[in-house]
Computed example of a mutant assay.
Amino acid sequence: MIKNGNGVDETSLNGKPPSASEVQTVELVLPNDTNLLGNLLGGRLMHWMDLAGAMAASRHANSIVATVAVDSLDFRHPVRQGEMVILKAKLTWVGNTSMEVIVRAYAENMISGNVILTNEAYFTFVALDENGRPKKVPPLVPETEEEMKACREAEERRKKRLQRRGK
């Protein structure tokens, strides 16, 4: 770790590609996770998605993060008891202290082997220092055309989010 005169770790401010902080987790849908129809509760899925997104953002920022916004959470297909939920989280955009992460949820039926995209959402996190104050994060260095497109689209979502908040 190399600290400058202001005590900032300069090695952590080098740019990182989205692949460096990508996260994949798996959860099993148990009876306690479901509603009366045997489908995964939306709130439980949102919790799992938030955790996966936070892990990717923390990995990028090398710090604790806090969720500040969730955009476009779409429920496309129910997840049934006994299925696995595969969560994939990847950074799409980075500002000074905040980061956007796309989190995709897939249901895998362990009997048939079928995997289907069930949900996706964009989570915005802010990196926090040891005093709970926003902290500068390393820039994002997109490597593929798809990642560059995701970054441009994230900037548009950010503008709309700020407009809704009156900023």
Rank of each mutant, 00 (worst) to 15 (best):
M1L: 13
G5V: 14
G5L: 14
V8I: 15
E10F: 01
T11M: 07
P17W: 00
P18Q: 10
S19I: 04
E22D: 10
E22L: 07
L28G: 12
T34F: 02
L36K: 06
L40E: 11
L45V: 10
H47E: 14
H47G: 11
W48K: 11
D50M: 04
L51W: 08
A52N: 02
G53R: 08
G53N: 03
G53P: 06
G53E: 05
A54G: 15
A57Y: 03
S58P: 03
R59M: 05
N62Y: 06
V65S: 05
A66W: 05
T67R: 09
V68T: 15
V70G: 04
D71C: 04
L73C: 12
D74S: 08
F75R: 00
F75S: 04
H77D: 08
P78Y: 03
Q81T: 12
G82L: 02
L87H: 12
K88S: 14
K88A: 12
M99Y: 05
E100R: 07
E100Q: 15
V101K: 03
I102M: 14
R104S: 13
A107T: 00
E108S: 01
S112G: 06
G113R: 09
V115N: 05
V115G: 01
N119G: 04
E120A: 15
Y122R: 10
F123D: 08
F123V: 08
N131Q: 13
G132C: 02
P134F: 00
K136A: 01
K136W: 00
L140V: 07
M148I: 09
A150M: 14
C151Y: 11
E153S: 03
R157T: 01
K159I: 12
L162R: 15
R165P: 05
G166C: 02
